[in-house]
Structures are given as C-alpha cells and as structure tokens.
C-alpha cells in the first residue's frame, strides 16, 4: 500500500457575491495516494474546479475557505499565508488548465516560459542546463525539442496543451492537477494526449487529479473517481465500482444519461430538472429535488458521507444497488 500524500477533510469554500453567499464547495473529504490518479467528475457549477483551486489556494478575491483541512504530506495548507503557500505551488503541486492559450504568454517563446518557471521555482539552473531540461521535458510530453524557440501561436491546440503539461512537470511535482485538460481538443488529439499523460504518470510516479465534466474521459484515466453535485462530493469509489455498481442515484443517472459509441445502443435516460442555484441550496440532501427516491428524511437531513463497503463512499439515505 502506497503512502497517502493528500488528505482533504471537510473542505468548505464560499464565494461572496452581490446576490449573497454561494456555497461552492461544501464538506468535501477525500484522500489521494502516491502515484494514484483521482478523477473528479460533475456538471458545470458543481464545484469541481473550486475544489482544485482550493487545493492550491489559488482563490478569487471573493472566495474564502470556511473550514476543513488540506493536508499535503502532513502540512495543512488552510492556515498558511500566501507567502508560506508559494514554495508548494509548482514545486510540489502543479496545475494544467483548460485554456492552454491563456496559460502561455503570447509574446514569449514557449521554451523561455518554461525556463522562467524553472528559474523562479528552482533557481539553480544555468541557461544551458535549463535548455537541457526543457529539451528533456519536450521529449517527455511528445513535442519536438526544436519547437522550443517558437511562439505559442505557432503551435496547434494539442501542442500548446502539451507545452503546458511540460511546464507543469518542469519542477518534478508530486501532484499534478489537470482541470479539463482536453476539453477544447478534438477526439484524436485528446486521445493522444490522455495516453501521453497516463504514460508519464507511470514513468514519473506522480499523483494526478483529473477534473472533467466528461465521464468517459475520467473513465479512461482515473483509478478512483469522485462524483460531485451542487458543491458536494456525493460518491467516491474505484473507477470500476463507480461505473458498474454506482450507489448514489445521481451517479446512476449520470451513467445512464451518457451516450456511448461502443456496445449495444441502449436507451438514454433523462434526469428531470436542473442543478440548484447554490445561492439557495436545497435543504437536506442537495439532490433531493431531482431524485426519484427522495423521501421525507432526504428533504430534512443531510446524509452522511460514509463507507458502503470496500472504500466505496457515498452520501445518500437510499443507496441503490445497481449493476450496469
């Protein structure tokens, strides 16, 4: 059994807006082992990106962590100041964002941007060493090292995303958080990139957190999967369990709503209603207004996030026994 490097406990995060307080992340707990990849899946506005940003405390001005712990190798990030947080960012935990174009500065050469990241965070490279390291990184992510002296606009979308990954890997982080890394890409490019990420993870042995709205992408790359709904982690289990024995009705609905090109063409099921406005989260279980199994207790009391056997966590008063 490998070591747990990240332990998130009861993480709660709020946004203050002109309309009121949005509880974007509410009481989220999970752990991540060394070398493991965790997928966080959910619809837009479910809080998955907020969780990722909270982990590095890369928060917007109006966001505040209300409670909980983020223990990375024993250190709790929550009480740390901006200054104390800085050494952990990039060197221990790095991030790959969805919009690769925005992560790269258009007026600098791609290679130079990675060199700058290296110098900022590690600071001990000579220029020749740094270029050597960039060559290594480019080869690792499947880019021709000759491209390092080109500008971002000369790259295709897939190449840019690879460059951003190279940058994220530059300081040998223990954990890489990838927020919708392939969403803007076409399937063939996406496929190549996902494969590359998996290979890299095996090679380097880093941990990964993948965040996506696309459960098929998450299924491809994750060992364990957490399903989020309306700021809550509603289910957390191994990928196989989530896909074949989902417990939470929301997960069941998500699975049966997702079309697939393979296998027999099954009827797609729809889920009535829409996710709640987090300014006014529903009472009790946040899924109850859309849940076909909801009873009185669901409306009144929040279900506990507990183990339903073999590390299969779910927060539901009426856990389902479904085999898909």
């Amino acid at each position: 059994m490998s070591e747990t490097i990240l332990r998130v406990e009861n993480l709660t995060m709020h946004y203050t807006t002109r309309a009121g307080i949005v509880s974007a992340v509410d009481d989220v707990s999970f752990t991540l082992d060394e070398g493991e990849s965790l997928g966080l899946v959910g619809e837009s506005g479910c809080g998955k990106t907020s969780v990722a940003n909270s982990l590095l405390k890369l928060l917007a001005d109006n966001a505040v962590i209300k409670g909980g712990q983020i223990r990375f190798k024993g250190t709790d990030f929550v009480p740390l100041s901006e200054e104390e947080m800085r050494p952990y960012r990039w060197r221990n935990i790095s991030m790959v964002f969805q919009a690769a174009m925005n992560s790269l500065n258009p007026v600098y050469r791609v290679g130079d941007q990675i060199i700058e990241a290296l110098e900022t965070h590690l600071g001990l490279y000579s220029h020749a060493q740094a270029r050597q390291r960039v060559t290594e990184l480019f080869t690792m992510v499947g880019l021709d090292p000759a491209l390092m002296d080109q500008y971002p606009h000369e790259y295709s979308g897939g190449m840019r995303q690879r460059a951003v990954i190279a940058m994220a890997l530059s300081c040998n982080p223990d954990l890489v958080i990838a927020d919708e890394p392939t969403t803007a890409l076409d399937v063939i490019v996406q496929d190549a990139l996902l494969r590359q990420l998996k290979t890299l993870q095996e090679m380097i042995g880093m941990s990964m957190i993948y965040i996506s709205h696309d459960i098929a992408v998450i299924a491809e790359v994750s060992d364990r999967i957490g399903v989020m709904y309306a700021g809550k982690l509603v289910e957390l289990a191994s990928a196989d369990e989530i896909f074949h024995h989902p417990v939470h009705p929301y997960t069941v609905a998500l699975m049966s709503a997702f079309p697939s090109v393979t296998g027999p063409k099954r009827e797609l099921q729809t889920l009535a209603g829409e996710p709640p406005n987090l300014l006014y989260p529903p009472s009790g279980c946040r899924f109850h207004p859309r849940c076909p199994f909801a009873t009185e207790i669901c409306r009144q009391q929040e279900p506990e996030f507990k183990d339903h056997g073999g590390g299969h966590y779910a927060a539901c008063w009426h856990p389902q026994e479904v085999t898909v």
Partner: peptide, 10 residues
C-alpha cells in the same frame, strides 16, 4: 440484475 430504472419516467 438491473432494476427498473426510475429515470425513464422523467
């Protein structure tokens, strides 16, 4: 065995 899926009625 697969149970009757309640979402079909939505």
């Amino acid at each position: 065995e697969e149970r009757h899926n309640p979402f079909a009625t939505a």
